[in-house]
């Protein structure tokens, strides 16, 4: 292989690496806004009521949510894990449900907490 060809291949490769790196970095560095909604969710057949005694742990500060609340949390990177702590007001028993969201390059997500907790396959809702 002659020198010129080798170098040009190397240069092209480096450019490609740079572009790929840019994508990778965008993937890692992108902030997404996740809108969590704690109101009644009507999915495929079932109707899930809002949750009481809900506490959300995300990448930001933990937040408590009352029924009907809607909050915005932001998350960075390709995926994030949300933890929902639900303390039943009657029994004072709490359970934790963690949910991993794969975000990709999409910027905004609308998530219904009752749907997640209720194990719905498609907890997204449309505004």
């Amino acid at each position: 292989m002659n020198v010129k060809l080798r170098r040009n291949l190397l240069r092209v490769a480096l450019c490609l690496i740079a572009v790929a790196g840019g994508f990778l970095l965008s993937f890692i560095g992108m902030y997404h806004s996740i809108i969590l909604d704690n109101s009644e969710f009507s999915g495929a057949g079932a109707v899930l009521p809002p949750l009481e005694g809900l506490r959300v742990v995300s990448e930001a500060e933990p937040v408590e949510m009352s029924p009907g609340d809607r909050i915005l949390v932001s998350a960075k990177g390709p995926s994030t894990t949300l933890v929902f702590e639900i303390t039943s007001p009657e029994t004072q028993q709490s359970r934790e449900i963690s949910y991993t969201l794969h975000m990709g390059f999409k910027k905004q997500f609308f998530l219904s907490v009752p749907a997640i907790v209720g194990g719905e396959k498609d907890p997204f809702f449309v505004e």
Binding site: L25, G29, M30, Y31, K107
Partner: peptide, 18 residues
């Protein structure tokens, strides 16, 4: 605009600026 943040944002900005 793309919603990047942190160090990756700076690096991507530099890559775009180059």
């Amino acid at each position: 605009d793309w919603g990047l943040g942190g160090m990756p944002a700076l690096l991507v900005a530099a890559l775009l600026g180059t």
